[in-house]
């Protein structure tokens, strides 16, 4: 009976539910209606937040930055000197705005996912809502970001080398009978790269949020003060780890995007 009840509670408490996109409202553009999900809302919120916060950081130009300006400048300089320049060399300044944008956008989405905004709104207004959620736990969103990197890297490569040279340099110099196989392998690799980029970010965010939701579920399932205390302690620890993951995943996405651009613009083979 107890097992049955526990299974019943577990089936009611779906740890994946916080990750599933929920439609919030419809936007009408003439004859077209676009459904806006909570993840789309979070993307817009991240965009607005960045448009508001980043200019704040650069409002006062100081030789020795401090406070928020110092934080933003430190991240920007680190990304330019430690991530971009070793890979892109003299092309760094051409792509640094893309790299910075990617990093801050993904980081903001990851950090916003840790804010229980829907619960805060519920506490204040008493109305159930879905204005929150991890947008980077949506494979279509991480896929969109990865496809952006895909197009930027290949278009940059074609612009730099010319389409003919780009295709010729697409494979390493190999004996001619192997050219079709190696070309096909490299072609598939080119498409696997954005896929791996998207899955890496998506899987890490999904895993963290599912684990936190599962730990919350344990309180509901076991209904014991001891387990509740342990769960809360584990949730706090996991939330700190998620904070680290938010930065690490944004960094890894940016680093790999930089590498893929460098593969395209420099003659790797």
């Amino acid at each position: 009976m107890t097992i049955y009840l526990n299974n019943f509670v577990v089936s009611q408490f779906d740890p994946l539910r916080p990750l599933i996109p929920v439609k919030l409202f419809d936007l009408k553009f003439g004859d077209y209606t676009v459904g806006v999900s909570n993840h789309m809302f979070m993307i817009a919120a991240a965009g607005v937040l960045l448009l508001f916060l980043l200019p704040l950081a650069t409002r006062k130009k100081r030789l020795a930055p401090k406070g928020f300006q110092n934080l933003i400048e430190s991240i920007c300089v680190f990304l330019r000197e430690e991530v971009a320049r070793p890979a892109l060399h003299e092309n760094t300044d051409r792509f640094i705005s893309f790299i910075w944008t990617m990093f801050f956008f993904i980081l903001t989405l990851n950090l916003l996912a840790l804010v229980p905004s829907d619960s805060i709104i519920y506490l204040v207004t008493g109305k159930k809502n879905h204005f929150g959620g991890p947008a980077t736990a949506n494979i279509w969103i991480t896929g969109g970001l990865a496809i952006t990197t895909f197009f930027v890297s290949h278009i940059a490569g074609i612009k730099k080398q010319g389409i003919k040279n780009y295709i010729v340099n697409f494979i390493p110099p190999v004996p001619w009978p192997l050219i079709p196989l190696i070309f096909f392998l490299e072609l598939i690799t080119a498409f696997v790269r954005p896929f791996a980029l998207a899955v890496r970010l998506f899987a890490n965010i999904v895993a963290g949020h599912t684990l936190i939701a599962t730990l919350v579920g344990m309180i509901v399932v076991f209904k014991s003060y001891g387990i509740a205390a342990a769960s809360v302690a584990a949730i706090v620890a996991m939330s700190f780890l998620e904070l680290l993951v938010a930065f690490i995943q944004a960094y890894i996405f940016t680093l790999l995007s930089t590498l893929f651009i460098s593969f395209s613009i420099t003659n790797e083979h």
Binding site: P86, I188, F195, L256, F260
Partner: peptide, 23 residues
């Protein structure tokens, strides 16, 4: 020369494992 780097380029292999498996 700030564009020349003496850092090891091991990072270029960071994604090779997933590419290998994916292909």
């Amino acid at each position: 020369d700030r564009d020349s780097s003496d850092k090891p380029d091991y990072l270029k292999w960071a994604s090779f494992g997933l590419e290998f498996g994916g292909v």
